[in-house]
Simulated assay, not measured.
Amino acid sequence: MRLLADIFLLIGAAFTFLGALGLLRMPDVYNRIQAGTKAVTLGSLSILLGIALLFPDWWSKLLVIAGFILLTNPIGSSTIARALLVAGVKPWQKSGEGVEK
Rank of each mutant, 00 (worst) to 15 (best):
L9K: 07
L10Q: 08
L10K: 08
I11C: 09
A14Q: 03
A14I: 14
F15D: 00
T16L: 10
T16H: 01
G19P: 04
A20Q: 03
A20K: 01
L23A: 01
R25Q: 11
M26K: 07
M26L: 14
Y30D: 04
N31C: 14
R32I: 03
R32D: 09
I33N: 02
V40A: 07
T41H: 01
G43F: 00
S44P: 00
S44T: 14
L45S: 02
L45Y: 04
S46A: 15
S46V: 00
S46P: 00
G50E: 05
L53D: 03
L54Q: 14
D57F: 05
W59L: 15
W59G: 11
L62G: 06
L63H: 03
L63A: 15
A66Q: 06
A66S: 15
L71W: 08
L71E: 05
T72L: 14
T79K: 15
I80G: 04
L84T: 10
L85H: 13
L85Y: 14
L85T: 13
V86T: 10
A87G: 07
P91I: 05
P91N: 09
P91Q: 07
P91D: 05
W92L: 05
Q93S: 13
K94C: 04
K94Y: 11
G96H: 02
E100A: 10
K101Y: 15
